[in-house]
């Protein structure tokens, strides 16, 4: 996917963009709906996410994460801005003024993919109570207090479950830088 992004960045390659759209739009829309958007709004936010990808492709650099991570970040920030009508305080990973980089080093790409595979394996193996809070936070977009309320748990319990989950994830990717 990173090479498709590079093609969009370098030569405004419409065919590469169409492929990116087909690969990502259905999941971006799904993400927006999980975050509480109705289908119409989710559709709009999906278009806007992919438009942002088109516009900002030149700022994407492979060494800052995979295309998936980058596009997820764009979707996440748009969600904060538009869905919750709150101004995003989180800059995109490309936040600073930087040149578009050359192709990411192949092992860099590989490492990133390997990290994501391992993270996913850890997530799949998490105890249910930990997986639940992580999903509510990352996929449903709930704050700690909202999760506590939803699950009828003390705030401290929600936070400690998040911490326990991350301990395992961190351990799993530690040897990959």
């Amino acid at each position: 996917m990173a090479d498709l992004l590079q093609r969009v960045a370098r030569s405004r390659d419409v065919e590469a963009f169409r492929k990116l759209f087909q690969a990502y739009a259905p999941r971006v829309k799904s993400y927006m709906m999980r975050q509480g958007a109705d289908p119409g709004t989710a559709e709009e936010l999906t278009q806007e996410t992919l438009l942002t990808v088109w516009r900002k492709a030149a700022l994407y650099s492979g060494d800052k994460g995979s295309a998936t991570t980058w596009i997820f970040t764009i979707a996440r920030n748009l969600r904060i801005d538009k869905l919750r009508r709150e101004v995003s305080w989180q800059p995109l990973p490309e936040g600073h003024a930087e040149e578009a980089s050359d192709d990411p080093a192949p092992d860099e790409e590989l490492q990133e993919r390997e990290r994501r595979v391992r993270v996913r394996a850890v997530l799949d193996a998490l105890p249910k109570d930990q997986a639940e809070v992580v999903t509510l936070s990352y996929v449903e977009g709930l704050s700690h207090s909202e999760i506590a309320e939803r699950l009828g748990l003390p705030l401290g319990t929600v936070k400690s479950r998040m911490r326990l989950a991350y301990d395992k994830i961190r351990e799993a990717v530690e040897d990959l830088r």
Binding site: F17, R27, S30, E43, T46, F72, V119, V134
Partner: peptide, 28 residues
Amino acid sequence: MSLIGAALFETIAPVEVASTAPIVEARA
């Protein structure tokens, strides 16, 4: 930590998108 978001993002069941890429391209 954004790897967690990306990993979960990959597991989300896709939803059919009504608009097609060419429409986006026109706006792009």
